[in-house]
């Protein structure tokens, strides 16, 4: 028995201990990384469990959406933008990732009430599992995207190897945004509607459908300041133009990513003691 006791003394918890909430949250999250993995798997498999095609829907779903979008919008913009389907689809893929991951992070967290009230876990697992889930979806959506890229005859260059860097930045930015909207949504249910609506507006301003040059000049400046516009840019460049994204875009978006992560982590952990009382 004495050996048992010795081992267990490593676990000691003191509620009065001064702590850095952000560091604690990250450390706890590392301990619960297998939970994040399991939640990602659940999100992906449970969704199509009863369907005949099953997991293939995660591949088919974006493919079909992309084809519909491409057909409709190509008719509108094909003349002004060469290789328009690739231009459009690269924008849609990264936009969907950002919009769907941050929205799911928020919804999962809001509906985690019964779980959070019964079992201890670091609350940010919901944000990270939502981002993980949509990262898987994004990677699958890249398969048809690259195929279309190839068949339409856009230049495929080594710049494509830059994509992981773009993806890492976008993922971290989305983590920050997801944490921020999740914490706000718990205190104000209106946040859900507000955020969904803002996303729609942002999508049109972020250059998913058209190049920034096609906008009136006054609007061009404003749009280029939007972090989501730069987000689309740094993902699109390696695929559509076959070039490494402009350094200004990278610097600017990286700065936003850092700010967003800090704000998201700070607000989320600041409020997290209160979640069990509220959700």
């Amino acid at each position: 028995m004495s050996t048992d006791i010795q081992i267990t003394q490593e676990y000691f918890y003191d509620s009065a201990k001064k702590r850095n909430r952000v560091v604690d949250e990250i450390r706890e999250l590392m301990c619960y990384r297998d939970l994040v993995r399991n939640l990602v798997r659940r999100n992906i498999t449970a969704r199509y469990k009863r369907s005949v095609l099953g997991i293939f829907w995660t591949l088919l779903d974006p493919l079909l959406t992309m084809m519909i979008m491409a057909v409709v919008f190509t008719a509108l913009f094909a003349k002004s933008i060469p290789g328009y389907p690739v231009f459009l689809l690269s924008g849609i893929v990264i936009w969907n990732f950002f919009a769907q991951a941050s929205t799911q992070a928020m919804m999962d967290f809001m509906y985690s009430g019964s779980l959070v009230a019964q079992v201890y876990m670091p609350k940010s697992v919901f944000t990270f599992s939502a981002i993980g889930t949509h990262l898987v979806n994004l990677l699958l959506a890249c398969i048809p995207l690259f195929l279309i890229d190839f068949f339409i005859g856009r230049p495929i260059t080594p710049a494509i190897l830059f994509l992981p860097v773009s993806l890492l930045l976008v993922s971290l930015f989305t983590v920050g945004a997801g944490l921020l909207v999740s914490s706000l949504a718990v205190f104000f249910a209106d946040m859900v509607n507000l955020f969904t609506l803002s996303l729609q507006l942002l999508m049109f301003l972020s250059g998913v459908f058209f190049t920034v040059e096609s906008l009136p000049e006054s609007l061009q400046t404003i749009v280029s300041f939007l972090p989501t516009f730069q987000m689309v840019t740094i993902f699109r460049y390696p695929i559509y133009y076959g070039e490494i994204p402009p350094i200004e875009s990278l610097m600017y978006f990286s700065a936003w990513t850092i700010v967003m992560l800090i704000i998201g982590l700070y607000v989320f952990t600041r409020l997290s003691d209160e979640y069990a009382y509220r959700v």
Partner: peptide, 22 residues
């Protein structure tokens, strides 16, 4: 079980807690 953080006062726990709640 650390689901709720006390509003005030102090809790100390020596050991790994597991609960049959939920």
């Amino acid at each position: 079980s650390r689901i709720i953080h006390p509003t005030s006062g102090r809790l100390r726990v020596w050991g790994k807690v597991s609960s049959l709640l939920g």
